[in-house]
Design a protein around this nucleic acid. Sequence first.
DNA 1: CAGGATCCGGACCGATACTG
DNA 2: CAGTATCGGTCCGGATCCTG
Lengths: 116, 116
Amino acid sequence: MVSEIRNNKHCQCPVEATLEVIGGKWKPIILWQLRTEKLRFSGLQQSMQGISPKMLTKQLRELEEDGLILREVYPEIPPKVEYSLTEFGMTVLPVLEALCKWGVKYLGRECVLDKQ
Amino acid sequence: MVSEIRNNKHCQCPVEATLEVIGGKWKPIILWQLRTEKLRFSGLQQSMQGISPKMLTKQLRELEEDGLILREVYPEIPPKVEYSLTEFGMTVLPVLEALCKWGVKYLGRECVLDKQ
DNA sequence: CAGGATCCGGACCGATACTG
DNA sequence: CAGTATCGGTCCGGATCCTG
């Protein structure tokens, strides 16, 4: 199923595959929020300024399909759903940190250029 | 200029900024191709199965704006243009390798799942 | 050779309203 | 509370044709 999606998008290349998984607009933030704690849907929504429920749902489902996060539903009224990183999901954190580190360098460099 | 683009896309976050820079569909491949050698437009086009000239141009211009690659025009007829990595562009290679490494893990895991 | 111009479908993504 | 449904705008990216 997941591989079908991948194949549709011609993702033989590991780099592209990774970008498909974590490259979604909100996915890095979601993963980062879940790094230290389980969060509920509303918790995530609040911690991410202004994301629409539709988008949040979509990104969460994709991350779940890709095995990075776990979705736990508690059969209660009102409903309660908790999201957390899987073990595999945690393996992506160093990648995010690498991206972040380079991003800092890039943004800093950009400012220098702007001042010239 | 670059920062305006960035700001339009709300890129305060270093991770997102990085993804904007290298997240383009063909950009990782371009950067990877230029890792070891200068290449001409046609050379790049051949090494990347089926990219249209429009897209290649666009991605190259963006990478140039972001300071990752250098565009050298030789005033000849017929025209000759060579693309190469800048020093700054080389600093992104380890990031690509991190993405690649995790991608291999992800794709391998995916195959395992598919066989079950 | 290295692209620019144009057209177009579809994906991405936001806003809003509604529901079990 | 945790979503779904619907609408609509923007942009990505491919195909095709054209040019200095």
